[in-house]
Simulated scan of single mutants.
Amino acid sequence: MLSFRTFWMPLLRLLIAGLSLLLSLSISTQAQALRVGYFDLPPHATQDAAGKASGAAVDMFRLVAQRMGAPTVNFQQLPMPRLLKMLDAGELDAILLLVKNPEREAKYFFPAQSLYQARAGLAVAASSKVTVLPSADALQGMRIGIFLGQYLSPSMRQAGLNLELVGGGQDMFVRNFKKLMLGRLDAVYAPDTFVLRYEAKVSGVAAAIRIVELPEPATPGYTVFNKKDAANLGARYEKALEAVIKERGDYVSAFLRF
């Protein structure tokens, strides 16, 4: 008859080895680099002069990733259509500052808490009589500068608006602010007033303009994951985001400074 040691010890060693392997795989999975995409949207996310990802959303995600057990993050700046295709194909783990719509909500995991609440607005000349917009109807008759491919909030999609289109490019705000200062536009639109303030500052016209919010609800922006990663990355992200906010403060007060 086989002794206890002879029969059970080899099985016990196999069991311990198997558990060790599973544990090491779990640790390796949590510590692997995250692949995160974003579109150019300063001051939230952009590239610095050296081509390195920078901006408030990038800085905050780096801290969240550390809390997730993933100290390395590989960022990629690309146009939104390319980012969505890469997330669908599993070539990205997450996209920063994605706005929710029914199609995206069906495909992707949106955390319970948004990263940021964007408020659409207009930049008008400091001398303008427009100080507040009581309703969307107040936009009628204004010459408003917009950009090619720019997201238009609900107030900006109403019929009859006089929208003047400017092509894309790094100097698109500079060109529209110049038109505003020359009186060729009544306002410059952006779906995020923080973007307007940032661009006005770097363009040197901050003292010459006024920012007026559009009369509509804020639009939340999320860090979004593929649904197949919801139980792993998505759940870890939610816990880590909560911890970072508790420790450092919310996105606007702690990170969105320029």
Rank of each mutant, 00 (worst) to 15 (best):
L2C: 04
S3V: 04
F4M: 09
T6F: 09
F7V: 02
W8C: 04
M9C: 03
L14G: 01
L15G: 02
A17H: 06
G18R: 08
L22F: 06
S24Y: 12
L25Q: 15
I27S: 08
T29W: 09
L34N: 07
R35V: 09
P42H: 08
P42T: 10
H44Q: 13
G51T: 11
G55Q: 05
V58P: 14
D59V: 14
M60R: 15
V64F: 05
A65V: 06
Q66E: 15
Q66A: 12
R67Y: 07
R67A: 14
M68T: 05
G69Y: 02
G69Q: 07
G69I: 07
A70G: 06
T72Y: 03
L78M: 08
P79W: 01
M80R: 10
R82H: 02
M86W: 00
G90Q: 01
L92F: 02
A94C: 04
I95A: 14
L96D: 15
V99K: 11
K100H: 04
N101Y: 03
A106C: 03
F109I: 01
P111K: 12
A112K: 13
Q113N: 09
Q113C: 01
A118T: 13
R119C: 03
A123H: 01
A125E: 08
V130G: 00
T131F: 13
D137H: 05
Q140I: 04
Q140T: 02
G141K: 09
G141W: 11
R143K: 11
I146D: 00
F147K: 01
G149V: 01
G149L: 05
Q150I: 07
Y151M: 14
P154S: 13
R157I: 04
R157M: 12
Q158W: 05
A159Y: 10
A159L: 11
G160W: 05
N162M: 11
L163G: 01
L165D: 09
V166L: 13
Q170N: 15
D171Y: 10
M172W: 08
F177Q: 06
F177V: 08
K179P: 03
L180T: 00
R184E: 02
A190N: 12
A190Q: 02
T193N: 04
T193E: 11
R197E: 13
R197F: 03
E199K: 11
K201R: 15
V202K: 13
G204I: 08
A206Q: 11
A207L: 08
A207I: 03
I209V: 13
R210T: 05
R210P: 03
I211Y: 12
E213C: 01
E216W: 08
N232R: 13
A235C: 03
A235R: 14
Y237L: 02
E238D: 04
K239V: 02
L241S: 06
V244W: 06
I245T: 13
R248T: 06
D250T: 03
Y251T: 10
L256Y: 14
L256F: 14
R257D: 09
R257H: 14
F258M: 03
